[in-house]
């Protein structure tokens, strides 16, 4: 922990994530949902003109296409970003631990079947498979999260299986077995706690990629619907306006630059933090 705080780049990463977390928690105070709104994640619209308006006192970050308030979208989008990232990492870690643990622990045909399964999923570029899954299960934010989860678990399962294979031969496992511990107890109390660090390193390193993949699905129109507070979706709204207006080619800069910067900084924060976690937890990287 001390090491995490002494390194400037990991400190910067931590600061970024803490900042975004604060925004996510304080969202109802930073951007008050309009009265009578059923779902606070739906961005309020101010008028029906399609042309984005520049930042003003009323709309701090301006409005994007169709007059969605950009500030509101950014603030609530922070919540969406955290929800997506945490949901995908936790669920795919869970599946990875369950299947990877079983494969390594039992070996034999269970191992063979599960590992060939990971081979198949890993045979696709992850975004491509995610696009296929979302498109046939109907586009939407939840389906996008599920599809990113479905393409993310194999790398966790693989990593854990390898570690379980080596740890289950150790003496303390034999000792636990001699004491009459059940399979589940040996696996979850004795083996997995001993190989959880590499898994955590991988999880923190893959956080950024997960956020980018999910945002890419939203950008492609396969994730959150138009008007939902989601950064990827806000960026796709800026697509028609990058040429600018007559006389000023950067007239609509805010529609792209503000959500773009948010995604970039969010992912950067996770990546800096992930690097730091790896340096701390992975003894081979220590110099």
């Amino acid at each position: 922990m001390k090491k995490l705080l002494s390194n400037p780049s990991s400190l910067a990463g931590l600061a970024l994530i803490v900042f975004f977390a604060a925004v996510a928690v304080a969202a109802p105070f930073l951007a008050r949902p309009p009265k009578g709104a059923r779902n606070p994640y739906l961005i309020p619209q101010d008028g029906y003109s399609s042309e984005p308006a520049r930042p003003s006192a009323k709309h701090w970050f301006g409005t994007t296409e169709s007059q969605y308030d950009l500030y509101y979208g950014m603030v609530w989008g922070t919540r969406t970003a955290f929800e997506v990232a945490l949901f995908v990492v936790v669920t795919s870690l869970f599946i990875g631990i369950l299947l990877g643990g079983a494969a390594g622990f039992y070996g034999g045909w269970i191992d063979e079947i599960l590992m060939r399964g990971t081979d198949v999923v890993l045979a696709f570029p992850d975004l491509v498979l995610a696009v296929v899954i979302v498109s046939v299960t109907r586009p939407g934010l939840f389906n996008a999260m599920i599809s990113v989860m479905l393409v993310s678990w194999p790398s966790y399962a693989r990593l854990l299986r390898g570690d379980v294979l080596s740890i289950k031969e150790r003496d303390f496992v034999a000792a636990a077995r001699a004491l009459g511990a059940s399979d589940a107890r040996i696996l979850f109390r004795h083996i997995i706690p001993n190989c959880v660090y590499p898994l955590l390193v991988l999880a923190s390193l893959s956080m950024g990629r997960i956020v980018i993949t999910a945002a890419a699905l939203s950008y492609l129109g396969l994730g959150a619907p138009v008007g939902y507070a989601d950064w990827g979706q806000l960026i796709s709204l800026s697509r028609n306006w990058i040429m600018g207006g007559s006389g000023n080619s950067f007239q609509y800069w805010h529609t792209l630059l503000i959500p773009g910067a948010a995604i970039f900084l969010f992912v950067l924060g996770w990546n800096l933090l992930g690097d730091a976690v790896r340096d701390v937890l992975d003894p081979r990287q220590r110099s």
């Binding site: 980018i212 945002a215 950008y219 960026i235 990058i242 040429m243 600018g244 630059l257 773009g260 992912v267």
Partner: peptide, 20 residues
């Protein structure tokens, strides 16, 4: 490069080198 989504970078480049 690791943290920048390609669609953000792509749109930025278009804004600058095509729009401007």
């Amino acid at each position: 490069g690791y943290s920048l989504p390609s669609f953000v970078l792509g749109l930025l480049l278009l804004m600058l080198f095509y729009g401007k």
